[in-house]
């Protein structure tokens, strides 16, 4: 008999999928906004990083579950 130890990898792989897409979209939209209005860069970048951090925290939950599995 053998046991397959993929659960941790699967948890973080699936769990990081959504936040990965989200961070990509946030970055794309922020670049679009900067392209439209370059003067607003200073306002957009902190908010972009904040939104990315919130999206990222979903991935952090799955990282914890991957550690705890």
């Amino acid at each position: 008999m053998f046991t397959l130890a993929v659960s941790g990898g699967l948890i973080i792989a699936i769990g990081a999928l959504g936040p990965g897409i989200a961070i990509g979209l946030i970055g794309a939209k922020a670049m679009e906004a900067i392209g439209r209005n370059p003067e607003a860069t200073g306002r957009i970048v902190p908010n972009m990083i904040l939104a990315m951090a919130f999206a990222e925290s979903i991935a952090i939950y799955s990282l914890i579950f991957a550690f705890l599995r």
Binding site: A53, E56, S57, I60, Y61, L63, I64
Partner: peptide
Amino acid sequence: FVTFSFRLFG
């Protein structure tokens, strides 16, 4: 507590 610490650590 969890998100702050694990984001940086991770």
